[in-house]
Design a protein around this nucleic acid. Sequence first.
RNA 1: GGUGAGAUAGUCAAGUGGCCAACGACGGCGGACUGUAAAUCCGCUCCCUACGGGUUCAGAGGUUCGACUCCUCUUCUCACCA
Length: 399
Amino acid sequence: MIQEALREIQRGTAEIIDIERIEKLLKAYFDEEKTYTVKAGFDPTAPDLHLGHTVLLQKLAIFQKYGARVQFLIGSFTAMIGDPTGKNATRKVLTKEDIVTNIDSYTTQAFKILDPEKTDIVYNNEWLDELGAAGMLELASNLTVARMLERDDFSKRYASQTPIAVSEFIYPLLQGYDSVHLASDVEIGGTDQKFNLLMGRQLQKAYDIKKQQAVLMMPILEGLDGVQKMSKSLGNYIGVTDTANDMFGKVLSISDELMWRFYELLSTKTLDEIVELKSGVSDGSLHPKKVKEALALEITARFHSDEEANGAKEEFDKVHAKSQIPTDIAEFECDGEVWIAKALLDCNIEPSTSQARRDIKQGGVKIDQEKVTDDKLVLTAGEYLLQVGKRKFAKLKVN
RNA sequence: GGUGAGAUAGUCAAGUGGCCAACGACGGCGGACUGUAAAUCCGCUCCCUACGGGUUCAGAGGUUCGACUCCUCUUCUCACCA
């Protein structure tokens, strides 16, 4: 039982520090039903979660399954400093208002995965506001500059003369102090958080917390391109608020290689099941597309519902596999005669008439399923189904 | 604070008086092939009812028949020194 739990917990992790501690916690839970705490910090900097964030959330959910109370820490205080992690430039500092507006949507999204009954939402400004200058100095005395500069991105920035604000040095200290205050048993975070996570251990020791937190690091999930990390700014993300159709389609568009990565980090299938799927694909008894569809269904259903997920799949098959027309198409109206390029522009399926003409010349535009060859075509009264490429559709009614 | 270098399309990056709407790479888009995959191949990639016109190379002026290219100022970046 413990072994099984451990296996699930270890799944997909990049690194675990002090696995013995986790084992003991699990043992105490299975033997005596003792719960323990798992902390994870979230910066309320971006209001929208994507699947990359859910990797952590799902790991938390697994912990909840095995007796953990999750300390869902909102970095309400630290967000105002800006975590230097992964940035090579000083980050913009958020205002209080920005943060408050982000938190709400953040938590509702998170509870699609987490069990609210076993989750404590905590805000670190509650104790950090009170820390004061004296407390701050005491905290800071636990760390030397040399040690701080060991941190990878700090040393790189220092070497390359990129500015480091002193406030950024403080961030890891505060994050570590959160662990002291909460007396966390385990903290999880991304691999990029290693330094900060370890700081928690160090400070817990300094502040005489008897047991130091175990640390569990998850890898960073790749985005749709399979190369860069999933992030909103790169546009390669699957948002948890994406529509069922979008979500399904996006998952299906990832490469076969990346699919396994998604399985490992996002699916709730057991490791054995995944191994089975893998061997099925490699010996040819299972079509990779089927496997990917199953993944897309699972993920879509998680954030929507089974019915919606199935609907998305049907829609997808209809549009792409059988190249039929999608169900919901935006409709537009206009008066008088319209030049085709202008019509495409007005229906928002082309960005400019120039682009529209180019696509027509390349045979990428269809009206009522018929390829358009004349870029000077004028639409007279009637109803038309306009299509650009494979995916962009619009209905236009000319009066 | 001083000195020097630079700012070019979504990004990186050529171009240093006309041949520049601006090489190339990446990205993106369209086509072929497919499993809307990946890989590959071909084409396109500022705007405009267009074999023509308009607006671009940080911003504002200036020199010139003509400037992305030269000059002046402004803003911002970066490097070296303090």
